[in-house]
Design a protein around this nucleic acid. Structure first.
Length: 425
DNA sequence: TCTGGGGTCCTAGGACCC
DNA sequence: TCTGGGGTCCTAGGACCC
């Protein structure tokens, strides 16, 4: 059996660890620029605040019900996430887990043939709460997809299950799938949900009644795997962490930017962050993409969006070399006369730092840069983010964050903050 | 006025090879 | 008039996830 440990409304729960008075009150956490709702407490969900709701549209509701709003504090969430992972994984053999996202991890319970896994998971749940004050739900089932279903059941019926539910017998599975809406199946997004309903598939169970050819045609290979997983036939394994295949740094700006030099400074900074993250995993990239765009919601202003990619003659992770490319691409796509709202840099096509294929004809300076770069990284690690940086960076952010509470300042001071270390899907 | 950010995988079609 | 067959690799776009 697998178990899925999932933190309940994780970012809000983290806020509550700093301020216990937030317990039982409606609380939301907002994205950068305080733009969208990205985490909601149960009380906030009950008020009808949807996920990803633009904050400005709900101002009245927030005020009326005294909803507590917080800017995102990702240092805190990463820290708490690490703690939850450490506690959970101490209960299984070493490679038998997969960190799925910042607030979820799968455990492989294969080594526990003789103990009561339900009780065991109750213990895990309780220890996470006792030590970190983070409430979690645990769904146990033979496949990952069914773990997701079990987890949903736990959250839906809190008074019945005390945070843990096992979905094991075929009777329970059938009952669960006849209850579960098709759009709530892991892997069915908005588009597919509509397509399913058009074809008379409303519950997860209905999908199992469709012929495989139909599933293959509508959903591709994903669908076939999904059906098997729902039947209890394992298709998805617990995976060891793998290096990233692409890195992106993108931001919306608090205010629209109209000066070329301001936008340039931003994309150069994003390029630097990409380079730092490449060095952190000891890889070089062979491709760099830069994009800029105006505010897509402002129909009264002229719209412009453009991206451009360059393939590098020699793989690199030097901030200087990547910065140079970013600058060239920026020059090629930037157009005067627009109000820019968002920009970003992507890097991909990675090779390990020590396995670079060098072009015969292009000069390669990566190795001259590397010692300087590593020294820079070491100093920033010691003294703080962006303390040492390239001259092209202002070192300032253009996105807003509410004033930090004294509790949070104290938290930042007292903890060595871990690096984010998550796979995204 | 105000609308996030960072990932993965699959597929279809085109270019190219022998 | 007649115009093969099979394979790989790359890319863009679409779908999904948290």
């Amino acid at each position: 059996m697998y178990a899925l440990v999932d933190c309940n409304n994780f970012f809000v729960s983290c806020e509550r660890t700093l301020d216990p008075k937030l317990e039982n009150k409606p609380v939301v956490v907002l994205s950068n620029n305080d733009g969208c709702v990205i985490s909601r407490s149960k009380e906030a969900k009950d008020l009808g605040i949807p996920m990803a709701a633009p904050a400005f549209k709900y101002k009245e509701l927030f005020k009326k019900h005294d909803v507590q709003c917080f800017s995102a504090k990702f240092e805190l969430y990463n820290f708490k996430s690490q703690r939850v992972i450490e506690i959970s994984t101490a209960y299984v053999d070493q490679p038998d887990y997969e960190v799925y996202s910042i607030d979820e991890l799968f455990l492989d319970l294969k080594s526990f043939k003789y103990i009561n896994i339900y009780d065991y998971c109750i213990t895990i749940k309780n220890e996470i709460y006792d030590q970190e004050k983070i409430p979690v739900s645990i769904g146990i089932a033979p496949t990952k997809t069914l773990c997701k279903v079990a987890n949903r059941i736990v959250k839906q019926f809190p008074e019945q299950f005390e945070g843990v539910y096992i979905l094991d017998t075929s009777e329970k599975i059938e009952k669960a799938l006849k209850w579960l809406n098709i759009g709530d199946v892991w892997g069915i997004g908005r588009r597919l949900a509509v397509k399913m309903q058009d074809n008379g598939v409303f519950k997860a169970w209905d999908l199992l009644q469709k012929p495989e050819m139909w599933v293959r045609k509508i959903m591709g290979i994903h669908g076939v795997r999904m059906v098997n997983e729902l039947k209890g036939i394992r298709q998805l394994e617990i995976d060891a962490p793998s290096p990233k295949k692409s890195i992106a740094v993108t931001r919306s700006f608090m205010e629209m930017l109209t000066k070329k030099e301001e936008v340039r400074e931003r994309v150069e900074t994003f390029g630097m962050y990409c380079s730092e993250r490449l060095r952190k995993q000891n890889t070089c990239c062979k491709m760099v993409t830069v994009f800029v765009q105006t505010n897509r919601f402002r129909k009264d202003l002229p719209e412009y969006r453009k991206a451009m990619t360059q393939i590098l003659p020699n793989p690199t992770n030097s901030s200087i070399l990547i910065g140079r490319v970013v600058n060239e691409l920026f020059e090629a796509i930037y157009k005067e006369g627009f109000h820019y709202k968002r920009a970003g840099v992507f890097v991909n096509d990675f090779v390990p730092e020590d396995q670079r294929q060098i072009s015969l004809f292009e000069e390669d300076t990566q190795n001259q840069h590397l010692p300087v770069m590593k020294a820079m990284d070491a100093m920033n690690k010691k003294f703080g983010k962006d303390k040492v940086r390239l001259g092209s960076m202002s070192g300032e952010n253009t996105f807003g964050r509410a004033k930090l509470s004294p509790e949070y300042e104290a938290f930042l001071k007292n903890n060595t903050l871990p690096e984010a270390n998550f796979r995204f899907h």
